[in-house]
Design a protein around this nucleic acid. Structure first.
Lengths: 337, 337
DNA sequence: ATGAAAGCGCTAACAT
DNA sequence: ATGTTAGCGCTTTCAT
């Protein structure tokens, strides 16, 4: 294993015939340094390929590591990727670097990642909590002043800052859109009810029905964890004596599954609104109407929350709700028969 | 700004009435410690909420920081996200943490990120180089033993390990697939020729034509940087006196643009093969045939390369080519008229 | 304008 | 089985 040790300040100092402290002054531009000395130091730095060791600096200064730890379920999911990107861009100017890990929605990996991040003395912690995790252990860290923000879903076990989408209101708006086009039999296809986002969106669905005075029908509620399950669910809600005329798909998989299911059935008369946008939504036939989330904004909001905490804001935990936006493209505007 | 300073080994030691070194022994389980001492140390650690400071440890041990710096153009792009995920999973067991930054395809941000990572003394550096960047400055780091791997595209200025998709061969296979279905007038819609991946894929396109003895026709080559441009390009190659009967879309945008363009023209008779898979490919009508890349495998391959370097492999720079896979779904199997 | 000494939190290499 | 000393690379605090 090669020693990758680079030149240190002392190395540079020795070259020039000064002390490490002088080099430090040149590097950080604080104390006064003679022009000629500075020049020679800079020259030696360049010649030796010196890079100041940021970790040693942080340690001596007593600062935490200039990183923010982010735990997301899956880096390949563009929702979380975009969120991370929005956050990173927003904190970059503050000199913070993003360190990420994916939990695969398991509480074990999540715990282990958080633990690593804390051992690294991250400046702040951002977590998309997995379904079954709890975070009592973070109370002490929070009490000690470590900013903690939960993303996309609130956490169990701690009260902490949190940024979520307007799931309930977004779903309400999506379903109201279908109702406005004359539908009264609207199916809901979503995740398992144990998921926070599904519960919220389901509430929004019921809100919209209630507002319009449409009775709730259990038979129109289906679970579809993946494409195929959702496609099958579409078949069920479209059958029976009082079939649905419209579908509200409460997540990405449900939406694409619904598209697939409708295509297989050759049904071009069923209205469809999905929750969360898809890159190909507009090339579908008909183009898919969705309730779009704004993951980059969730990241930015988290960054804002975090930075205000770093600036000394000790007020009680806040929850930021990031608005969704109804994007009407065609599939949701099919009229009721 | 709150002091988030946690308990140190000395704090724990003082509590128990031993020396820091003893606590260190307990934490790292190296030297011998009396059962009773160990118990009391553990108790004190728990009580004080002690977390060993990994950064201080790495510094003292003379190890580099246990992170790998990864520079990608865009975290929201699932290709890079999946790549990062594949890498992260593969190196996790080695105790390496991923630190990421996005360059937005700009050489300035890329340079700045690399610089930050080097200042943090990352264990290794992974870069998806932006088009106009050059990395001469990394020669010294490489020479000093820092593992550097370029991803998706080779870099200018340094010879280093590199992992890329089988762009040329993949494109060749995709176009050959169209030829096998009787097409002889096959359009190529892709990025600007200054991009490495486009150049490779274009070569593959020409390889396939040459193999089949089909003359190359400049008029069938179009640039489409985004959906709309690609959709428009489709219109052009389908017009004229000798229109295309099939389209090879050399990237994601070109592929979705082509789908859009064909839909707008109401053309269901034109065969289409895209390069790089899409989550919705199978719900399109007809389902989209693609040459799928394997971003997770690119990440894993990079991890493998990297770890062998960390294990002392000093052999000359290697380039790993990750195979692509033709996924026939329907759009590519439409027969030539 | 520059330097000397001490120490951030931890551990290597010795003691004892 | 435990403690001492020194020092990783840097910066603080005081000198000079």
């Amino acid at each position: 294993m090669p020693k990758v040790r680079g030149a240190t300040m002392s190395d540079v100092a020795r070259e020039v015939g000064v002390t490490a402290k002088t080099v430090s002054r040149v590097v950080n531009g604080d104390g006064p340094v003679a022009e000629e000395t500075r020049a020679r130091v800079l020259e030696a730095m360049a010649r030796l390929g010196f890079r100041p060791n940021l970790l040693a600096r942080n340690m001596r200064v007593g600062a935490r590591d200039s990183t923010v730890g982010l735990v997301i379920p899956d880096m390949g999911n563009p929702f979380f990727g975009t969120l991370a990107g929005g956050f990173e861009t927003a904190v970059r100017s503050r000199g913070l670097t993003l360190i990420v890990g994916s939990s695969n929605e398991t509480s074990e990996l999540e715990r282990s990642l958080i633990s690593t991040f804390l051992a690294r003395r991250v400046t702040a912690l951002l977590v998309v909590p997995s379904a079954d995790s709890e975070h009592r252990s973070l109370r002490a860290e929070r009490a000690a002043g470590l900013p903690v923000v939960f993303l996309d879903r609130p956490a169990a076990g701690v009260t902490a800052d949190c940024v979520v989408s307007a799931n309930r209101e977004g779903a309400r708006a999506g379903v109201a859109h279908l109702i406005a086009h004359g539908h009264r039999r609207i199916a809901f296809i979503g995740d398992s009810p144990k998921l926070y986002t599904r519960r919220e969106r389901f509430q929004g669905y019921r809100d919209a029905l209630a507002e319009a005075g449409i009775p709730f029908d259990r038979a129109l509620v289906e679970i579809g964890h993946d494409h195929e399950a959702a496609a099958a669910a579409v078949g069920r809600v479209l059958g029976g004596t009082a079939p649905a005329t419209a579908v509200f798909a409460a997540n990405n998989f449900a939406a694409t599954g619904a598209v697939l299911g409708l295509a297989r059935l050759g049904r071009r008369d069923v209205a469809l609104v999905g929750f969360d946008d898809l890159p190909l939504a507009e090339v579908l036939d008909p183009p898919l109407t969705v309730v779009a989330q704004d993951p980059a904004e969730i990241g930015r909001a988290a960054a804002g929350l975090l930075m205000s905490r770093l600036d000394g804001d000790r007020s009680k935990a806040r929850t930021v709700v990031v608005p969704t936006r109804l994007v009407a493209r065609g599939s949701g505007e099919l009229p009721a028969p």
